[in-house]
Design a protein around this nucleic acid. Structure first.
Length: 274
DNA sequence: ACAATATCCTGCGAGC
DNA sequence: TGCTCGCAGGATATTG
């Protein structure tokens, strides 16, 4: 599942490959993947343009074009954006293909069809719903201990649901929420506003440390995720709780619990997380 | 105002 | 063997 570390890895790998490449044409196999404008309008609008900067905000990729447009891509759960030689066979669920001037293609594939693409003027991206309401970037300088404490203040929602809400912090999904709460020793069902000062400190440090380490490991390839050149990450080898239901906690040996919190599966140690 | 649930979609494993 | 069912989950819409 692409979360911040995975999307950041896609951003880095794609930027190195597609910057300066010209789009010679676009094939749309699944028009529903394109949210705006229509598929026909998008094809006409990006043909002949070159990719410039590849940016990221939360789990959104923003790829600037030489025309002043920006292509916004959200991979959701099984989406992939991969730079591939044109002669390679098309994988199943290839919904959109950007043909490039170097004999390669940028392919958008998505088994579950939740991922989507928008093209709009760069100065209009700020009004895209979802993108415009994102909380701070957790690895950026503007995400501070103080800001985290303020956003937790008075919240009755469970801390797991708080972490998953992109309006609070941008980029955390189900895997990293569980890993962050384990690292911080905080039970996922604790009301967000009930955390003590020292727990907030631990949560803040865990958010930074876990996400930073996962980016270093080029993301978690638990099921579908690959980066912008089709390679898996290695962070799945370091998961402490996610996907480890029933297995012994690495810290205390207690079997890892799996329950549903905020409608999502949650993995935690009932002894280490209080 | 906030919180829990349904929705979208496909593949896979469990159970019969 | 082949069916059904539940589950996986990001974001949004809807219901409570």
């Amino acid at each position: 599942m692409p979360e911040l570390p995975e999307v950041e890895t896609v951003r880095r790998t794609l930027e190195a490959k597609i910057t300066g490449r010209k789009i010679t044409g676009v094939t749309v196999n699944q028009a529903a993947s394109i949210k705006s404008p229509t598929a026909a309008d998008l094809i006409a609008r990006v043909r002949g343009m070159r990719f410039s900067t590849v940016r990221r905000r939360g789990k959104y990729l923003l790829i600037d074009l030489s025309s002043g447009d920006t292509m916004v891509v959200h991979l959701r759960m099984t989406g992939r954006l991969v730079y591939t030689p044109a002669e390679e066979p098309l994988p199943k669920h290839t919904h959109v293909i950007f043909h490039l001037d170097d004999g390669r293609e940028l392919r958008f594939t998505d088994q579950r069809r939740f991922g989507c693409i928008w093209v709009m003027r760069e100065d209009e991206t700020g009004s895209l719903s979802g993108l415009c309401s994102l909380g701070p970037e957790p690895l950026g300088d503007d995400f501070t201990r103080k800001k985290l404490a303020q956003s937790l203040l008075g919240k009755k929602t469970k801390i797991k649901a708080f972490l998953l809400d992109q309006r609070n912090i941008a980029g955390i999904g189900n895997i990293y929420a569980d890993e962050i709460l384990f690292a911080g020793g905080i039970h996922p069902e604790r009301p967000a506003g009930s955390l003590s000062a020292s727990e907030i400190n631990r949560l803040f440090t865990s958010i930074k440390d876990i996400l930073h380490f996962a980016v270093e490991q080029r993301g978690t390839s638990f099921s579908d995720y690959v980066d912008g050149v089709g390679e898996k990450g290695s962070h799945q080898n370091y998961l402490k709780v996610y996907g480890r239901g029933g297995e012994p906690c690495f810290r205390c040996g207690t079997a890892i619990s799996v329950t549903r919190v905020g409608g999502r599966s949650s993995h935690f140690c009932s002894h280490c997380q209080v």
